[in-house]
C-alpha cells in the first residue's frame, strides 16, 4: 500500500478557543490510501500530532456514516467537500489526487460560533426546533396509527423533507448564512402531514421568528444550499415555507 500512498498538503484552520484568533496551518501528510475516509486521514494526522507532542486538530464527528449530522468540514471552499450528496464523513480520499493541497475550515456563520479548531456551536438549530418543530402530542394520547391514512405522495414528500440531518451545511454555504433550508425542511415535513396541520400556522411563525433571533441571514434564493445539502433537501421546501408563512401571517393579522 505504501507505494500507492498519496502525498498531500493540508491547510487546516486552528483556533484555540471561541475568543482566540485563528489561522490556517500547513500539515504535510504522506502515505494516504485512497480507501481511507477523509476523517480517517485526519485520524492519522492526529495520531502523528499527538506523538510529536502537539495538540491534535479538533473536529466534530460521531456516526461516520452520514446520518448523525455531526461532521461539518468546509473543504476546499465547499461544505462537506467536493462531492455532492454526501457528508464529510462519507468522503473518501479517492476523490483527491496525489500532490493536492486541501483547505480545511470550520462552518462559518455568526450563528455558529467556533468552539475550537473545526468545531462549531450549532445549538441555534436546537432552539429553532424548540420554537415549534414538533407536534404537541403527549405520550399515550395517540389513536391507532392506521386511523390516520396519509396519501402516499404526501407521506413520501414529508419523508424527503424529514431526511435533513441538521448538519448546517446549508448555512455554511449560503453567502447570507441563512438557515431557510433547514427550517423549511421541518416546516414542510409537518405541514404535509394531517397530524401536523393543526399547529402549522403557529409553527411556521415561531420557527421563523426564532431563526431571526439567532442571527441567521435572510434568504435571497441563491440556491447554493440545495446544491451542498448532503441529503438533497429541495428548494421546494423553502417555497412551501414561504407560502405557509404568508398565509399564517395573514391569518394572524385578522
Amino acid at each position: 500500500m505504501a507505494d500507492h500512498g498519496m502525498k498531500l498538503t493540508l491547510k487546516i484552520w486552528r483556533q484555540k478557543g471561541p475568543k482566540d484568533a485563528g489561522k490556517l496551518v500547513d500539515y504535510p501528510v504522506t502515505d494516504v490510501s485512497p480507501d481511507m475516509s477523509f476523517l480517517e486521514m485526519l485520524d492519522v494526522l492526529n495520531e502523528q500530532l499527538v506523538m510529536k507532542g502537539e495538540e491534535p486538530v479538533a473536529f466534530d464527528h460521531d456516526c461516520r456514516e452520514g446520518i448523525c449530522g455531526m461532521c461539518s468540514l468546509y473543504i476546499n471552499g465547499r461544505a462537506h467537500g467536493p462531492q455532492t450528496g454526501i457528508t464529510t464523513c462519507q468522503l473518501h480520499m479517492r476523490s483527491f489526487n496525489d500532490g493536492d493541497t486541501i483547505y480545511i475550515e470550520p462552518w462559518r456563520a455568526e450563528a455558529f460560533p467556533v468552539i475550537k479548531d473545526l468545531v462549531v456551536d450549532r445549538s441555534a438549530f436546537d432552539r429553532i426546533i424548540q420554537a415549534g418543530g414538533y407536534i404537541s402530542v403527549n405520550t399515550g394520547a395517540a389513536q391507532d396509527a392506521n386511523c390516520l391514512p396519509v396519501n402516499k405522495k404526501d407521506a413520501d414528500a414529508a419523508f424527503s423533507a424529514a431526511m435533513c440531518i441538521g448538519c448546517g451545511a446549508c448555512v455554511a454555504t449560503c453567502k447570507n448564512a441563512s438557515a431557510m433550508l433547514f427550517v423549511s425542511a421541518k416546516v414542510s415535513q409537518l405541514a404535509l402531514l394531517p397530524q401536523g396541520r393543526i399547529e402549522a400556522e403557529e409553527r411556521v411563525l415561531n420557527m421563523v421568528q426564532q431563526m431571526d433571533v439567532e442571527g441567521f441571514g435572510n434568504c435571497t434564493n441563491t440556491g447554493a444550499c440545495e446544491v451542498e445539502c448532503p441529503k438533497g433537501i429541495s428548494l421546494q421546501n423553502i417555497a412551501r415555507l414561504n407560502r405557509e408563512y404568508l398565509s399564517a401571517a395573514l391569518m394572524s393579522e385578522k
Binding site: 402530542v137 395517540a142 407521506a155 402531514l193 397530524q195
Partner: peptide
C-alpha cells in the same frame, strides 16, 4: 405514538 408525532413511516 410515533405516527402522531409525525414520523413519516413508509406507506
Amino acid at each position: 405514538q410515533c405516527v402522531a408525532q409525525g414520523v413519516p413511516f413508509a406507506r
